[in-house]
Design a binder for these strands. Structure first.
Length: 423
RNA sequence: GGAGAGAUGGCAGAGUGGUCGAAUGCGGUAGUCUUGAAAACUAUUGAGGGUCACACCUCCGGGGGUUCGAAUCCCUCUCUCUCCGCCA
């Protein structure tokens, strides 16, 4: 949620920025500012009525105490009118607040100045490319054939017990998955992140806090009986740990990492894009979340990009980094870098990480604040990134490392898998 | 699942209709003292709206009600705790 003060003081910049998302927000922002003005006007009126009625009540109290019951009763009559008035103004106030909130919540974050205008993924800017594109031997096949050949993952069993998009990992497939999770968690810890194991279901307030609600209502699994949502990413429970907190300056930056399964309904779209591990309803991901001082957030974003790149380099996966254009960025983000690994048998890039700075967009909803040098409270900035999402890393790993003799496990993973080959 | 108790500021914990945004203690901050630290003492210390700044307004789990007036009374929801049952 954008800050009202920002929209008030930087109206032009907000409209210009949102245009990069191909959104014409001029009217909405104008409406917001008008509603805000009306709201404040209304509040001034309401406050003065309340102040008057408070004063009368106090007077009645002291009249009773002084034994002047008759006079006190006379004054009671005066309050009736004020009461009606304050009720009316109060309702108006609620109405205005509600309308204002609805409009505010409908606006996505304003992109950072470095973000280019664009509507589609084609407009994303490649900012880096690392690693050699491997050439595979003649009999090389996509990962969905490899997982079957070596009995690593059963998509059929998943369909049987749950449905499409819920794979079952078996044998060395399961062990490789677990090894990757441990590898990522260890690396994140070395980079200063503290590990958490959060709940996998959250309440609606948490869904709202990080911006999944109301924007992406239909994309989450919702348990209506208990009104809980299956988390689409660890970002949701982890960031919400700090909801409604005022943090001491010296506590910042807060760096968290967590492994969780992620649940996404992802309705629509079939075919090769979603084949095998490419897109799932349940998948594993290790996430990193940062809660930082506003002055630090872009420095921290760069560090995160560096860190995620390092993970891929250690795994020996060729990747490229994209700075997303306005239209391809998530609703809540001000600047996002996507990491894509090269899937050698599918011969395509697969997104394995998305690293974003949300600035105050989430903290304004969640009221995550710090106490500044000035002793006042200010909104923190939040950032998060995948480090990393498992399925597509697994897909690329299997495909890129396949040989006639089997699949070679990268050096760095062997301490975690305790096997060197999948044969 | 059954029965009972409770939800107050960073924490603990008073407050049962007006003088309560809320005693007291702890914690935090600033100062005095000290070579420095500790201790002691003094002052200060909730959040939000509003204002140039004051004033003023709102908030004692959420929502609704009674009343001139509610942290305090009533209704309702949510959550927590204790005991019993069940259970990895």
């Amino acid at each position: 949620m954008l800050e009202l003060s920002y929209l008030r003081n930087h109206t032009e910049a907000a409209v210009k920025g949102l245009a990069k998302r191909k959104i014409d927000a001029a009217q909405t922002i104008a409406d917001i500012l008008k509603l805000d003005e009306q709201r404040r006007e209304n509040q001034v009126q309401l406050d003065s009525v309340l102040a008057e009625s408070n004063a009368i009540s106090k007077e009645i109290g002291s009249l009773f105490k002084a034994g002047k019951a008759a006079e006190a009763n006379d004054m009671k009559a005066k309050t009736a009118e004020l009461k009606d008035k304050s009720k009316e103004l109060g309702q108006e106030q609620e109405q205005l607040k509600h309308s204002l909130e609805q409009l505010l919540v409908s606006l996505p974050n304003v992109p950072h100045e470095s973000v280019v205008e664009g509507a589609h993924a084609d407009d994303n800017v490649e900012v880096g490319k690392v690693g050699e594109i491997p050439t595979l031997y003649d009999g090389a096949v996509p990962h969905w054939d490899l997982t079957e050949k070596y009995k690593l993952i059963s998509f059929d069993l998943g369909v049987k017990i749950t449905g499409a998009g819920f794979p079952v990992y078996t044998g060395k497939g399961a062990r490789l998955q677990r090894a990757l999770i441990n590898f990522f968690l260890e690396e994140n810890q070395k980079a200063g992140y503290e590990e958490y194991i959060p709940p996998h279901f959250v309440n609606a307030a948490s869904g709202f806090g990080t911006g999944q609600l109301p924007d992406k209502e239909g994309q989450m699994y919702h348990m209506t009986e208990d009104d809980l949502y299956a988390i689409p990413t660890a970002e949701v429970p982890i960031t919400n740990l700090f909801r409604d907190e005022i943090l001491d300056l010296e506590k910042l930056p807060i760096k968290c990492t967590a492994y969780t399964p992620c649940f996404r309904r992802e309705a629509g779209s079939y075919g090769k894009d979603v084949r095998g591990l490419n897109r799932l309803h349940q998948f594993d991901k290790v996430e990193v979340v940062n809660v930082v001082h506003p002055d630090e957030s872009y420095k921290v974003l760069d560090e995160m990009v560096e860190h995620v790149g390092g993970l891929l380099q250690k795994l020996g996966l060729p990747y490229r980094v994209l700075r997303l254009c306005g239209g391809d960025m998530g609703f809540t983000s001000a600047l996002t870098y996507d990491f894509e690994v090269w899937s050698a048998a599918q011969e395509r890039w697969l997104e394995v990480s998305s690293v974003s700075n949300f600035e105050t967009f989430q903290t304004n909803r969640m009221k995550v604040r710090y106490r500044g040098e000035d002793k006042k409270t200010h909104l923190c900035h939040t950032l998060n990134g995948s480090a990393l999402a498992l399925p597509r890393v697994m897909a690329a790993l299997l495909e890129n490392n396949q040989t006639e003799d089997g699949i070679k496990i990268p050096e760095v993973l062997i301490p975690y898998t305790s096997f060197e080959w999948i044969k």
